[in-house]
Design a protein around this nucleic acid. Structure first.
Lengths: 202, 202
DNA sequence: ACCGAACGCAACAGCTCTGTATCGTTACCG
DNA sequence: CGGTAACGATACAGAGCTGTTGCGTTCGGT
């Protein structure tokens, strides 16, 4: 987290607009095809319209900068109401789909996955703070579904969860985010996973 | 393709072992976390145990080199027998899963997806020569399933296809390729997608 | 009003990569 | 044997990034 005020006795305050200009610059450039390791502080400062000095003053390493960038991506996650199974799943998938559609968030996570080896701390943090809680939320909904007898108890819940989420993740990974209606696509996936693709025996 | 022999009137032959040493070096380094744009010819030559000269002699740009690397990845795709729906799907998914498990191939494609903007030719070629034919094969199998009444006709086949393939693609994207049994996982996915996760109405 | 820190600008040495070139050496072909 | 080209090694200039330092200037707080 940005180091912030060390002594803070007096003097000019850091411009918050500079902070976000830098973070935005990173997101924009990554979305434009830049690499996490390849992105240079020179380029970031230039894109942000900020002196190279201002970047160094805030973050000692690119790792720390990217941590704050990741923080920006991490919006509040939705809370399923618990009333209806399909509705709860739809809420979760819709939130995911919106993240997938967001080109900047999507590109950042795609880059992070590709360069996980170069940024181990960043990568594990991504899992702990973003992936894990959402996965847990999905599991809760599914567990409730099993208890109510709406979902088969003889199937691994993790597999069901994976099946629901993967189509969106795969799109995020490939960057083919066009023609994706967050609301509609989520419901289609849910319907198909629950009801199955096999023709009913007549 | 490598430029090869322009006049080929005489002289020492290019060592094929050098070719594969270079390509292997790329695959190994990408699998180790290197980036396509970040990977330098210096590093490649060093890793391959080859003079920098030998690399320049074969490929004028990194783009062309990566094209040949991609070629190496592109193994022959399986041919479904057409006898049994689930069996055909299992054949296709197993081939995909094996590619996903292959750390080098997996890393290379993951890197390519992340850096598609920097290598547009490479990326489109990847789609045309690898993704498209496999997608078409899957569609054929599904169409046959619909004709035979084994698969619901009221669902978009592309969505079914996406649902079958995405779990594996998502794993490739995230690099969580551990504990993945190509044979078993494929069959589990097929069974769940066809039969559905909803509990049968009693 | 004054202090202190943020800010932009510039310079610096050190490093790496690129692309090209020049060597002497080695291997294949007619 | 003689021509030709691959090969390794080395050198070179040009370019970019890094991390640090030193300015003068601007702004916020006490």
């Amino acid at each position: 987290m940005n180091a912030e005020t060390p002594g803070r006795r007096g003097g000019r305050r850091r411009d918050p607009a500079t902070d976000s200009a830098i973070i935005d610059a990173v997101l924009d450039m990554v979305a434009a095809g830049a690499t996490l390791t390849g992105l240079s502080l020179v380029a970031i400062a230039k894109q942000a319209g900020v002196s190279r000095n201002s970047v160094y003053r805030r973050w000692k390493t690119k790792d720390e900068l990217y941590l704050d960038v990741l923080e920006t991506i991490n919006e509040r996650r939705p809370a399923p109401t618990g009333s209806d199974l399909r509705e709860d799943l739809a809420v979760l998938l819709r939130a995911l789909a919106e993240r997938v559609v967001d080109e900047r968030a999507s590109s950042m996570l795609r880059a992070l996955n590709a360069e996980a080896a170069a940024f181990p701390r960043l990568h594990s943090r991504y899992f702990e703070e973003i992936v894990a809680p959402r996965r847990e939320a999905m599991n809760q909904v599914l567990r409730r579904g099993v208890e109510r007898g709406e979902i088969r108890a003889d199937v691994d819940p993790d597999l069901i969860s994976e099946l629901l989420v993967s189509p969106l993740l795969a799109r995020m990974a490939s960057g083919s985010t066009d023609r994706l209606d967050p609301e509609r696509t989520g419901r289609q996936i849910i319907a198909l996973v629950l009801d199955g693709a096999a023709a009913p025996r007549s």
